[in-house]
């Protein structure tokens, strides 16, 4: 079961790397979040803890339903082109992603002792998700992909916390959800403003603001 879930996270992350249009990016993010939800749920079922059930419910509500919906709405509202604006094309991005996968695998192998293969895989996938988030933030031009990059990083961290250490304390978890939600709302608002002011959301051109 866990293997399937991890595989799903990995594939959805790759999907994000090769996504060329913003809706595709958002829906891949939705898929990744859904697999994350499944992972949390499976832990909750195993451990029979009310906290984990609530957390997985919140995860589903916020990351699978509300945030993607909100992002879709922004795209519709600001009516920019749906292109994510690639600084690296799909092929090179994919090569880069392979390299990142290898890097996170090597790293997690270093951290966890050799006997525990399952843990190594989980750690590698989480690292990969975090690195991909950074990758998306760097090599995609539009501000919306920057938000998604941040969310992907957050997902990776969540996976790391949930599977490797059995989850963070309940209140921390709740607080993080709230933080993520608020930050998405704020950033969405910023994008709206940037678009209004510059008539595009190309972050590269913000360098004109430099003194």
């Amino acid at each position: 079961m866990q293997a399937i879930i991890l595989f799903g996270v990995l594939v959805s992350t790759y999907l994000m790397i090769i996504a060329k249009r913003l809706p595709a990016l958002i829906s891949s993010f939705r898929i990744q979040s859904f697999f994350l939800f499944l992972a949390t749920l499976s832990i909750a079922v195993n451990e029979r803890q009310l906290d984990l059930y609530i957390i997985s419910g919140l995860l589903f509500l916020i990351k699978v339903c509300i945030i993607p919906h909100f992002l879709y709405r922004i795209i519709k509202k600001i009516k920019v082109s749906e292109d994510v604006g690639m600084l690296l094309n799909v092929q090179i991005s994919l090569l880069f992603a392979f390299f990142l996968t290898y890097l996170s695998w090597a790293l997690s192998g270093k951290i966890i002792s050799i006997g525990n293969q399952a843990q190594v895989v989980v750690l590698a996938v989480s690292f990969f998700a975090i690195l991909t988030g950074v990758f998306l933030m760097i090599f995609r031009i539009t501000a919306l992909s920057q938000i998604i990059g941040l969310l992907v990083m957050e997902n990776g961290l969540f996976l790391l916390a949930a599977t490797v250490s059995g989850g963070m304390p309940f209140f921390v978890e709740i607080a993080i959800f709230f933080d993520v939600f608020v930050s998405v709302v704020i950033m969405g608002f910023f994008i709206y403003r940037i678009n209004k002011l510059f008539t595009h959301i190309d972050v590269n051109k913000l360098s004109r603001l430099k003194g």
Partner: peptide, 19 residues
């Protein structure tokens, strides 16, 4: 350079080198 991508890149390269 004042470009957000470049700054993010710096952070990434730093993390990468640290790893």
């Amino acid at each position: 350079a004042g470009s957000i991508h470049l700054y993010l890149g710096y952070i990434f390269v730093t993390v990468f080198l640290l790893i």
